[in-house]
Nucleic acid binder design. Structure first.
Lengths: 146, 146
DNA sequence: CAGCATCCGTGAAGATACTG
DNA sequence: CAGTATCTTCACGGATGCTG
């Protein structure tokens, strides 16, 4: 199917872009291969439970139920899965003390602490601009709903 | 169901925590109310498509299909939803040019540009430590699978 | 206390087709 | 070109019960 290739009515001159030059952009990393991997790391950050756990652990090791209490709303299942994920990524260590009852401490690794910095920066930004974002949301919802 | 409250075998003295003091931690923000809102912002960052779009838009406005091409793998539906979400949060603007064929430009707002900075910091961290993380993953998987 | 196994409901995401 | 609408799928997450 030709899908019409009429030379008429094609690409409009419509809006004069401020930047029509020959690609003068910095483009820090056009490498598509990296994106995949980076995305997997970012998705971990996007996981709200992971972020909370990292936050909670940023000031020292914690026990399982200690974390569960602090986060307040997470199910045991999710906490387990979250911790496993973080452990898998080398972001937290899991230390078992063979006492009775058993005790397990979770602690951020060097890598985990490193991650906590940009995450906290992001969290700070989020906190600082939260009101503006929520305002935008309300406004948008009103427009779209009224 | 007493679940046993024998004074014996209770809380162990097991591991001498380096920090058993009366909570000398900084605790930047114990406010639980904020967490909810912050989480909603973080979840947006965690959404891989949102991050990609923000990245793509960080160097100037783009059209719908332009973004679709650049991201390569996103469905039209997801791109639409992602852009709607970003627009709702006041992170991107949507400008319609009533030409034929129609043209819509998406551009980061001031807020969106502000967000792109910590996001890129996070992306940089992810890229820098990607190999270490992937190594940890492989190692973990081997342990758990072998 | 810490954690796994299981079941099940919800909704997020892809594919496809149609409209302005 | 830039969407909307619909259908289907399936992974995420909660609840529950059991083990070491």
């Amino acid at each position: 199917m030709g899908t019409s290739l009429k030379p008429a009515n094609i690409e409009m001159p419509a809006p004069p872009r401020p930047n029509p030059g020959p690609d003068p952009r910095p483009m820090p990393d056009p490498n598509h291969a990296d994106c995949r991997g980076v995305a997997s790391v970012l998705s971990r950050v996007g996981d709200k439970w992971s972020v909370f756990v990292i936050m909670m652990l940023s000031d020292g090791p914690k026990r399982f139920n200690e974390l569960k209490r602090m986060i307040n709303g997470i199910s045991q299942r999710m906490l387990t899965l979250t911790l496993r994920g973080l452990e898998r990524d080398g972001l937290v260590t899991r230390t078992i003390f063979p006492t009775i009852p058993p005790r397990v401490d979770y602690e951020l690794t060097e890598l985990g602490h490193g991650l906590s910095r940009p995450v906290e920066a992001l969290g700070k930004w989020a906190k600082d601009h939260l009101d503006r974002i929520e305002a935008a949301r309300t406004k948008f919802d009103q427009r779209n709903e009224g």
